[in-house]
Design a binder for these strands. Structure first.
Length: 418
RNA sequence: GUGGGUGUAGCUCAGUUGGUUAGAGCGUCUGGUUGUGGCCCAGAAGGUCAUGGGUUCAAAUCCCAUCACUCACCCCA
């Protein structure tokens, strides 16, 4: 038997309702904030991601699904959306048509990592990008949108972390200082952190190794080396969040794995999922469009993991959706009336009712059991002597009451069914 | 890529120190008189015990390998 690829999942009836609910909620919220949906292709030229996200990042260096098409072009399945959205805005000159572009998406993403709780190879994100403004209100808005959605869902165990990475110059300067601080302590670091010292020194801060934490306790912090403009921007973001009553904490060691971030970064974590606890993450990327070879367009955005959100909901016992039901089950009493029963059922379907009937020539009892299993609100018994005189039996399945209804007066029948 | 755990019916799981035709609950299907659901009752279908080797008179049970799933590291949504 061929099975689904490792790290991919079928979403079956019973589960899909939760996805539809979440998608509807997300659309509604993002549209209230006046974001417009954008859909970009599932794959792009690999160079878009390697340039946008950063050649050295884990995503690009070891997690992308990359292959060559028949014309030898290197193609990659999208591992995230920001680079694609910026590409689309540049390509269609949306930045010239509108001063500010507020866009949102709901889409599958692909990363070839080892699957675990809250991590798949094909996973789904919703997110938003606001392009064309440096205003801190938009940074705060991203956080507010996520926070609102989690709140509406009823998630309890969430915490908002924010930080500022400043501009690249101050970050590089800071890295130098951190490198100096650690230069005589390298030998005491964990093996992982020794590697991080070379590849991604900021990551040593969130090492889970005790020795590392001990060493990092007294390390200089990035925020102490930010330029004044960045600091001021960060202050404004915080003030707006306070005014919007979004609880948050500044996490001076919040580092994100994508190269394009400048100034604000944030994550919202859940204590209700496994160790992959970030439900969403994002930040500002004022230099990305130029890195992609385009005009300068400042931007800020976020992405949220839908599997993780649904997992958190499940673990917190929220998002209990009502059972599905149908309006009418048409029970066929006489075997020879199969065609007429189907035609009648389809007539009701045309009148926008959710209707089911039997396709297997089953007994009346079996049809009734099926109607019950489907939570049918009504049953229409089609056939027998009532059929001979142009009527049928309508049964209300909640209270069991039955009445004879005239089949020639469909409108009054429909009224009874609605 | 590196570790740990787990693989028995569609689902959730039992299966005693290796010992006859492999079990339960739920679900599915049929029936409980001629045209009526839920509850109840009766019955049925459904398993190469993940796969391949090995040990043994005898393996779901012990050993090895492979694969899959799962959790964690790394990293991230």
């Amino acid at each position: 038997m061929i099975k689904a690829i490792t790290g991919t999942k079928d979403i079956l009836p019973g589960e899909i309702e939760k996805w539809q609910f979440l998608e509807k909620l997300v659309r509604n919220e993002l549209e209230n904030f006046n974001y417009n949906e954008i859909r970009t292709p599932i794959f792009e030229e690999t160079a878009l991601f390697s340039r946008g996200i950063g050649e050295a990042t884990d995503i690009v260096s070891k997690e992308m699904y990359t292959f060559k098409d028949r014309s030898e072009t290197s193609i990659s399945l999208k591992p995230e959306m920001t680079a694609s959205v910026v590409r689309a805005v540049l390509e269609h000159s949306l930045d010239k048509q509108f001063g500010l572009n507020k866009l949102y998406y709901i889409s599958p993403m692909f990363r070839q990592e080892r699957p675990q709780a809250g991590r798949l190879r094909q996973f789904h994100q919703f997110g938003a990008e606001a392009l064309g403004s440096m205003h801190p209100a938009l940074d705060a808005e991203m956080i507010l949108i996520c926070y609102r959605i989690f709140k509406i869902l009823g998630l309890k165990n969430v915490s908002v972390k924010i930080n500022s990475l400043g501009v690249p110059e101050s970050r590089e300067n800071y890295k130098k200082i951190l490198r100096e601080y650690l230069s005589d302590k390298i030998k005491d670091l964990s093996e992982d952190s020794k590697k991080r010292y070379e590849t991604n020194i900021l990551r040593i801060f969130d090492s889970k190794d005790e020795r590392d934490s001990e060493i990092m306790k007294n390390a200089p912090l990035l925020i102490e080396y930010l330029d004044n403009v960045s600091l001021e921007h960060f202050e404004k973001v915080k003030q707006i969040l306070l005014a919007a009553q979004v609880p948050f904490e500044v996490d001076p060691v919040l580092v994100r794995g994508l190269d394009y971030y400048t100034n604000t970064t944030f994550e919202i974590l859940s204590g209700s999922v496994g160790s992959q606890s970030a439900l969403c993450g994002g930040g500002r990327y004022d230099l990305l469009s130029e890195q992609l070879g385009g005009r300068k367009i400042p931007g800020v955005g976020f992405a949220a993991g839908m599997e993780r959100i649904l997992l958190a909901c499940q673990n917190e016992g929220i998002l209990q959706l009502p059972e599905t039901c149908i309006d009418v089950y048409v029970v066929r009493i006489d075997k020879e009336l199969e065609n007429e029963t189907a035609a009648f059922g389809n007539l009701l379907r045309e009148r926008n009712l959710k209707v089911e009937f039997d396709y297997q020539s089953r007994s009346v009892k079996a049809q009734m059991r099926e109607a019950n299993r489907l939570n049918s609100i009504n049953v229409i018994m089609f056939g027998g002597e009532e059929y001979q005189r142009g009527s049928a039996v309508l049964k209300n399945m909640k209270n069991g009451e039955q009445q004879e209804v005239n089949l020639s007066d469909i409108d009054s029948l429909i009224n009874k069914l609605k």
